[in-house]
């Protein structure tokens, strides 16, 4: 079965790259460029995986996932991978507290890594 992934990112080029890559990896991709739009799509479509930036206009990534986690059975369980530009340990612990199962620091981001992390999580590794 084709897996559904939601990608939320306000940087156009990055969003484009991620979308193109996951489409190539045979995902059904939903895209959003801010937290508000992301939240709406997430609640409508109940994707199998959410990949999201943190610093975004309107609704931030953290606010978005807090609301998703409070939205019933699906919201509690959906795996979430955050992309973050912030490396400080404090912010990272905050991200993890919010129910994120993993994060990737943008500076060190490599598309192959992102794809691998998503696939590993979905196949239950």
């Amino acid at each position: 079965m084709v897996k559904k992934i939601l990608i939320v990112e306000d940087e156009k080029l990055e969003l484009m790259a991620l979308v193109a890559r996951f489409k190539m990896e045979n995902f059904k991709v939903f895209e959003a460029s801010d937290g508000e739009e992301g939240l709406k799509i997430a609640l409508d479509e109940h994707p199998d995986f959410i990949l999201s930036d943190i610093m975004m206009p309107k609704v931030t990534g953290i606010e978005m996932i807090t609301q998703i986690r409070q939205s019933g059975e699906w919201g509690k369980a959906v795996p979430i991978l955050m992309l973050t530009g912030v490396v400080e340990a404090e912010s990272i612990s905050k991200i993890v507290e919010q129910g994120v199962h993993d994060y990737i620091i943008k500076g060190a981001m490599n598309m192959d890594d992102v794809v691998k992390k998503v696939n590993d999580k979905l196949s239950g590794k």
Binding site: L13, L15, M16, A17, K106, M111
Partner: peptide
């Protein structure tokens, strides 16, 4: 700088 570059790099990889 990094965001657009990451994007360009990702797209060209695809």
């Amino acid at each position: 700088l990094r965001s657009p570059l990451t994007g360009i790099k990702g797209i060209s990889e695809v």
